[in-house]
C-alpha cells in the first residue's frame, strides 16, 4: 500500500522547485504592485498638506514659491480638449473602416495597421521634433505668410502642441475603438441586414450606438494618455510661467507636467518649493488616475450589462 502510493508521488525535487517558482513569481508580482503603492503613498503623503482649494484655483505667486497652479491646470485641460477634438473623430472613423469595411488581407489594410502600430512605438520626444519641424516651421510659417501675419502660427503654441499630441494618441484611440466595435456580436449586424438595412445604416444605427460605451472608455484612456505626456510639448508651445491664461489656440500655455519638471530640475531653491512640487505631482497623478478609474469602471459595468443579455 505504502509502496504503491510512493510510486504515484512526484520526485521530491520537482515539488520543491515548483513551490520556489510559485513563490518567486508571486514576489515579482508583489514588487510590481508595490511600485505603484510606494509612488502613491509617497506622493500622497508629500502632497496632500499643500493641497487646498486655493492651490487649485490661484496662479503662482512670489516667483513661483507660493500660490497655486490654476494656469497649469487650465492649460492642461485646454490642451487636452483640443487634442481630443482632433484625434477622436479620426481615430473612431479609422477604427470603423478597419473593423467594418477593410478587406482583411488587402495591402491597404495591412498598411494602415502597420502605420498605426509604428505610430504607437515612436518615442514621444520624436513627436515633439515632428511637431516643431512640420507643424510649426513648415505649416505654421506657411500659414503666416499666406495670411500676412508677422508671427502667429509659425511659433510654438497650443494649437500645434495639441496637434502633435493628437497624433501621439491616435493609436490609442484607434485600438480602443476597434476593440469596442469587434466586441459587438455579428448577429446584430445580420439582423439589421436581414431587415433591408444598408451597411451604412447598420453601422450608424446598430453597431455604433452599441459600441458607444467602449468608445467612451477609449476616449477617456486617450485623454489620460494625452494629459500624461510632457516630452512632445517641450518645444511645441509649453511655457514655464505666463501671466495670462491662454485663451487663444495661438498662445503658449502652462502645463502641469512641465510645471513639475521645471520646478524639480531648474528652480533655484528646490527645498523651498518641494511641497508645491509634491502637490502638483499629486494633482497630475490624481487627474490621470481618475480618468483611468472611470474607464475601468465603465468597462466593468459594460461587462456586467453584457452578462445580463
Amino acid at each position: 500500500m505504502n509502496a504503491n502510493r510512493r510510486r504515484f508521488r512526484l520526485p521530491k525535487g520537482s515539488e520543491a522547485s515548483g513551490l520556489a517558482l510559485t513563490l518567486l513569481s508571486a514576489i515579482a508580482t508583489l514588487i510590481v504592485l508595490s511600485m505603484l503603492a510606494i509612488i502613491l503613498v509617497d506622493l500622497g503623503s508629500g502632497g496632500y498638506r499643500k493641497l487646498s482649494w486655493e492651490f487649485l484655483t490661484k496662479p503662482p505667486e512670489q516667483g513661483m514659491t507660493g500660490g497655486g497652479i490654476f494656469p497649469a491646470i487650465f492649460g492642461t485641460m485646454f490642451l487636452v480638449i483640443i487634442m481630443t477634438l482632433m484625434v477622436m473623430p479620426v481615430g473612431v472613423l479609422t477604427a470603423i473602416y478597419l473593423n467594418e469595411y477593410a478587406p482583411k488581407h488587402a495591402l491597404i489594410t495591412r498598411l494602415i495597421r502597420t502605420s498605426i502600430s509604428n505610430l504607437a512605438g515612436v518615442p514621444s520626444i520624436v513627436y515633439g521634433m515632428f511637431g516643431l519641424s512640420f507643424f510649426i516651421l513648415f505649416l505654421g510659417r506657411r500659414i503666416d505668410s499666406l495670411i500676412g501675419a508677422e508671427l502667429l502660427f509659425g511659433q510654438p503654441c497650443l494649437l500645434w502642441a495639441a496637434a502633435t499630441l493628437s497624433i501621439l494618441t491616435l493609436p490609442v484611440a484607434v485600438t480602443a475603438t476597434e476593440e469596442a466595435l469587434a466586441a459587438i456580436p455579428e448577429e446584430l449586424r445580420l439582423a439589421s441586414y436581414a431587415l433591408g438595412a444598408t451597411k451604412w445604416q447598420t453601422i450608424w444605427r446598430v453597431v455604433f450606438p452599441k459600441a458607444m460605451g467602449g468608445i467612451l472608455t477609449g476616449a477617456i484612456l486617450t485623454v489620460s494618455r494625452g494629459a500624461a505626456e510632457v516630452a512632445p510639448l517641450l518645444f511645441t508651445g509649453v511655457a514655464y510661467y505666463l501671466p495670462q491664461l491662454p485663451l487663444s489656440p495661438t498662445s503658449q500655455f502652462m502645463h502641469l507636467g512641465y510645471h513639475i519638471y521645471v520646478m524639480a530640475t531648474q528652480s533655484p531653491d528646490v527645498e523651498a518649493t518641494m511641497p508645491l512640487q509634491y502637490a502638483t505631482a499629486l494633482v497630475l497623478l490624481a487627474l490621470t488616475f481618475l480618468l483611468n478609474l472611470i474607464a475601468i469602471l465603465i468597462r466593468v459595468r459594460l461587462r456586467i450589462i453584457a452578462g445580463e443579455v
Partner: peptide, 8 residues
C-alpha cells in the same frame, strides 16, 4: 501603473 505620467 502604466498610466502614471512619466514626469511623475
Amino acid at each position: 501603473l502604466a498610466a502614471i505620467p512619466s514626469v511623475v
